[in-house]
Amino acid sequence: MTEIIVVTSGKGGVGKTTTSASLSCGLARRGKKVAVIDFDIGLRNLDLIMGCERRVVYDFVNVIQGECTLKQALIKDKRLETLFVLAASQTRDKDALTSEGVRRVFDELTAEGFDYIVCDSPAGIEKGAHLAMYFADRAVVVVNPEVSSVRDSDRILGLLSSKTKRAENGDGKVREHLLLTRYSPKRVAVGEMMSVGDVKEILGLDVVGVVPESVDVLAASNAGTPVILKEDSDVSRAYEDAVSRLLGETVPLRFVDEPKKGFFARMFGA
């Protein structure tokens, strides 16, 4: 069975592409056959984060318009045997993406025996974002612990429960998961940042992952290596935990509490 996962958020810049890349790598590293698709038509970026930008010959829209086969457009990852990337088109015509076209691509991936299709949604609530979520079985909602991001993700939750194939056909809800990024336990501890519990309570979602704020994310994107592949990094461990939870394992949350400080550190420390 092929499972379709949309990585979405509403707000831009919260870490959708970083998350799509890392979850896809994590699933593939456990032997799952994974296709990760960039739905941000006109603003291709997943290829850069995956480090395959120079290998893009054909894109998603080329496949939909029949200008090449799906096999020709799927870029096989150089690190992981079972991971494939489908790049977004750089055409400015957003109507190039059609519901029927997306469905055909998904049907073909299903027939090819893919275990997971990960859809990297664009920001906003326009066509690209709509089509990225339309066929989804599950949604990973990426949120920063910050007011505008939380509000926008609640809009997205509204769309997931009304504007998806599952909602329209009444065949069960899209399973929604919360993934917090740029989390700073230190700032949470002093009341400068909403906690996991706060965001969870406001949105009413189960938490699939909490990714700490870290310099590792920029370093990984600079290098074109999904951050989950970085060794000895809390971000990579946090994404690995999220992959475990997506696969149904129960894993305790890490990196959400600040290490306890002694008396002098509390009085005089920064």
């Binding site: 612990p145 706060d198 406001i202």
Partner: peptide, 26 residues
Amino acid sequence: MGLLALFRRSPPSAHVAKERLRIIIQ
């Protein structure tokens, strides 16, 4: 958190954020 923070009166900003979100999202 330094010495000054111990005397801080205003509610933590995270608390304000949570309350504002609770109302607008509802």
